[in-house]
Design a protein around this nucleic acid. Structure first.
Length: 484
RNA sequence: CGGGGAGUGGCGCAGCCUGGCAGCGCGCUUGCCUUGGGAGCAAGAGGUCGACGGUUCAAAUCCGUCCUCCCCGACCA
């Protein structure tokens, strides 16, 4: 649409250069900005407000399932990190170290936490003595530092914010149940709140968390056809409890190591919102996490401050009373048209226009951000219509993303076809895998695609077909994709 | 960490090759006038040209080192 083009002249088209489109939205919608330090960004108030909504909604779920919040130190002694061999091995390339305090060299250097299993494990060993102490269901909201080589706002930054759950259980079965329960909760969260459909599944051993017994993840598909991991849930088995000596006396009076889990979601989810829902005009935020759900734009005329503005203020109040996050933009230095574009860029789900004509007719014009459709609504029913419309917008975003996901999961009958999909449409490729790391590596080297997950729903079914790579009998059906 | 591109008022860029007064558009400030899809006119403000060092009478421009960002690859939420 040529009209559209004109309106969004500042943003690079999504189809023209997806990466550039992404960073432009991040900056122009004022979600985040770069600092002079590599990979370190400022989450600006608008972006942080999205995070606060995510946090609030996620925190509610975490607490509803019996978990409690706590806070552990930012610094972790090197000796702690070293206790779980695979854990250090996996994280050492990206750990930042503190070696000096004030002016004195430290006796033992301190890691800036890349994740908190080590420090939490140490504390758990002090606190847990009996089966009566279990389960321990802790969660922490914290910042994390990982010295990444390639960084991108929200998707991969040196420092990021997250939530990390750390639980201890009496039995392996309980730990496994917890791992899957959280995975299901994450999936439900993404779909309900973020309107992003995800595929829940198991990671291969190559892709699992360093120190975990088994890693599960939810994977989403961004609109450029690349996959993004939206959250992980690990069954840690007894790896850390053995390393940190977290023992309890069980119901039969024998000493046992606890069974643990850990799980996390991060500010990366904001990146996923951008890349799942955004269009050429900018962001499209799902109403449930949008900082502003509806923006009122009064249309000025001769004496609009006496006529239009009071009506707009009353509407604002009534919507706020209905529990909605609304804003009234009565600034005179910008024209309505300018504001329309601005709020589209920032992804505000609904725009409410009130002008002289509307005041005369006792109505308002509602414009949806998702479909850009307009409707005229009587002021009397506005506070009922707006929440309903917001729900429709939430549902539409989820539906569009769900259709996109379904359309972009393709079976590959041969390795040639597999490669061809990656060269053309991208998306997920559903194919059988022999379970061998040799094939996994070869596919990665040759196609840049990795096994994102072995979907849970596939695990109950018998595996049909041969390994897409070597032709040996398939051991699992996996979803492959290039990823962020 | 390898290959490529870039860094000049807030943003987008020209100027660099061939050294000689730092420019343009948008934005910003003030005033008038406008306002239903990024209005118009007028007058203004704003720069150690990414940083450091070198060459030169003279450096945005030439040389070197470093930093940051973007793209494409090896490692990871």
């Amino acid at each position: 649409m040529s009209n559209n083009e004109r309106l969004v002249k500042q943003i690079t088209a999504k189809t023209e250069d997806f990466s550039r489109w992404y960073v432009e939205i991040v900056q122009k919608a004022e979600l985040a900005d770069y600092t002079p330090m590599k990979g370190m960004m400022v989450i600006r108030p608008y972006g942080y407000a999205v995070w606060e909504n995510i946090q609030r909604l996620m925190d509610g779920r975490i607490k509803a399932s019996g978990h409690v919040n706590a806070y552990f130190p930012l610094f972790i002694p090197e000796s702690f990190l070293k206790k779980e061999a695979e854990h250090v091995e996996g994280f050492s390339p990206e750990v930042a170290w503190v070696t000096i305090g004030g002016k004195e060299e430290l006796e033992e250097r301190l890691a800036v936490r890349p994740t908190s299993e080590a420090i939490i494990g140490y504390m758990y060993s002090k606190w847990i003595k009996s089966w009566r102490d279990l389960p321990v269901l802790y969660n922490q909201w914290a910042n994390i530092v990982r010295w990444e080589k390639v960084t991108r706002p929200f998707l991969r930054t040196t420092e990021f914010l997250w939530q990390e759950g750390h639980t201890c259980h009496e039995t392996a079965e309980e730990a496994q149940a917890e791992t899957l329960k959280i995975l299901a909760m994450y999936k439900e969260f993404c779909e309900t709140e973020l309107a992003i459909p995800v595929i829940a599944g198991r990671k291969t051993l190559r892709e699992k968390f360093a120190g975990a017994h088994m890693t599960y993840a939810i994977e989403a598909l961004m609109s450029d056809g690349k996959a993004l991991q939206m959250g992980t849930s690990h069954n840690l088995g007894q790896h850390f409890s053995k390393a940190f000596d977290i023992k309890f006396e069980d119901r039969n009076q024998t000493l046992q190591y606890v069974w643990q889990t850990s799980w996390g979601t991060t500010t990366r989810m904001i990146g996923a919102l951008i890349m799942s829902h955004g269009d050429d005009s900018g962001l499209r935020l799902p109403p449930r996490v949008a900082p502003t759900q509806a923006v009122l734009v009064p249309i000025p005329a001769a004496n609009w401050k006496e006529t239009v503005l009071p009506v707009a203020r009353r509407v604002e109040e009534s919507l706020r009373a209905a529990g909605l996050r609304v804003a009234l933009d009565a600034r005179e230095e910008f024209t309505p048209g300018w504001k329309f574009s601005e709020y589209e860029m920032r992804g505000v789900p609904l725009r409410i226009e009130i002008g002289p004509r509307d005041v005369k007719n006792g109505q308002a014009v509602l414009v949806r951000r998702d479909l850009k459709t307009k409707e005229t609504v009587s002021l009397e029913v506005l506070s009922a219509r707006v929440p309903a419309l917001l729900e429709e917008i939430q549902a539409t975003l989820l539906k569009q993303a769900t259709v996109f996901l379904a359309d972009n999961i393709r079976p590959a009958g041969s390795y040639e076809e597999f490669k061809n999909i990656l060269e053309t449409t991208r998306g997920f490729i559903r194919a059988a895998w022999c379970g061998g790391e040799v094939c996994e590596d070869r596919i990665k080297t040759e196609t840049m695609a990795t096994i994102r997950v072995i979907p849970l729903e596939e695990e109950d079914r018998p595996v049909e077909g041969a390994c897409i790579c070597c032709g040996a009998p398939g051991q699992a059906v996996a979803l492959f994709a290039r990823s962020y």
